[in-house]
Nucleic acid binder design. Sequence first.
DNA 1: GCGACAG
DNA 2: ATCTTGTCGC
Length: 227
Amino acid sequence: MKICSIAAPATAQEAEAIQDALRPRLDLTGPGPRDPALVAGVDVAYADDLLAAAVVVLDGTSLDVVEQVTVPGRPAFGYVPGLLAFRELPSLVDALERLTVTPDLIVCDGYGLAHPRRFGLACHLGVLTGLPTIGVGKTAFVGSFEPPGRERGSWSELLLDGQVVGRVLRTQDGVKPVFVSVGHRVDLETACHDVLTLTPRHRLPETTRAADRLSRSALKAALAAST
DNA sequence: GCGACAG
DNA sequence: ATCTTGTCGC
């Protein structure tokens, strides 16, 4: 699939300006894909100045792997809270371009609309690919919230500046909740529905679990090959 | 001014 | 993200 490449800012100020310039291209019109046929998970693993980006496409119903791609690379930007996209997206876009199928939804590690400038990694990847995207974060980043009920499916609003920017969602009874926010072309209700479909027995979506494992093994292989 | 801070 | 042993639970 063809994807717009991400700009390479030299400074944090430039990076923030790029986010502000792209934010108007966001499509927050719902509802987006409910029970998508093909769902992609993306992740990046690091070791010193090397990295491995991975994309895994799953069948939305069986959750079986349909296709997977890995790409070795170098971090394009330091880790700066709020600017994660500039660090991870260059390599992830490379990997996505090598995909032979087009996913109906991309599940990102991290945040989307729940972001200081309302343009987290999931939003950025959505604008670049034109595909529906959502963000699923493992830890708190921005926004305030009350803990959701302990049962799977319980959720509470993630509020930022008086606006609902996401949901804190319990994906399994008694486990730590995850932070769901929309990226592009999906509404929050649909995003949470899809996350629950992707978490039949674990806290994290099968897409992120698969992408995480793949990126780590690819990094290990790249490390061995460079020796 | 001082912390906090996705991955 | 990554560095890391044993340990509790399904």
